[in-house]
Amino acid sequence: MSSDSPSNIAVKIESLAYAYGDRQALCELSLEILSGEIFCLLGPNGSGKTTLFRLLSTLASLQTGSVSVMENDLADDAHAIRRLLGVVFQSPSLDRKLTVLENLRHQAAMYGLGKSVTAERIDEATRRLGIDDRLHDRVETLSGGLSRRVELAKCMLHNPSILLLDEPSTGLDPAARSDLWSYLRLLQSELGTTVLMTTHLLEEADRSDRVGILHEGNLVALGEPNTLRAELGSDVVSIQCDNPSEVIDQLQTNWQLASRQLDGIVRLEETVSAELLSDVMQSLSGQVDNISVGRPTLEDVFIHHTGHQFWHDVEVVQ
């Protein structure tokens, strides 16, 4: 997965920019997705991930920059790219009035699969996803989790090389989310499928092989979740207090610790020894309401790179 020879690159995005009128949704984005990896595009609402998803799934036309999928250029040959993709949308693309089997047969027809291949693939996909006993149920009678499984079965019928998923966990309970990930790992190991998903869920991004963090159309961080977190040191210390500016000054003056303020909380993003932490806690005991120490999360990575909280656009004061 570390090699970046052209044959090992499933999707190559270069200087991709996209605007809706005056609003820039993607800004000169460059990124490579490697074959066989599970890649998560993480970003809050409005970060540009859905725009990128629409471009990659061939639903939106390129404005500037280039995208190639398995060495097929999106601008020249979207048709060839469509054959390589399996696309799972946030809102299901199933016909709710049709049965599971009718939906799957329809999908097979869209990819020109013959009758026997269709029957074989439907059998295989539905058994793998545990929906083989629901073939004759109308989709409108299925739960959200089961519908998502049908959607996955549908998108895998033509054995795509790349599976694109837009916020796949939306509306799923924890058990269904876990099932989804088991299935994605199965596809990765058995078929070598490359998985590219967008998400705004930090815990989902944490499970991926590599994550790209998007903020306001820019790729602000890229790497394996553990590596990204490690860049922040082993701990993140959050200090809740009445006068954050004063605490930041004291940390700098007394212990040469660089910290910053976010939403009224002082944050320290570096490895702090237990002795030093104890020293700090004792010295500041009269000024602080609460001190917490934790291992860095992807939210911390996001805050570190963007100066914003993941869920709220609260700016960091240095």
Partner: peptide, 13 residues
Amino acid sequence: SEGFLQGVLVSPV
């Protein structure tokens, strides 16, 4: 609006 069309549009037809 129900999402079915997008599935058709990303297929190679």
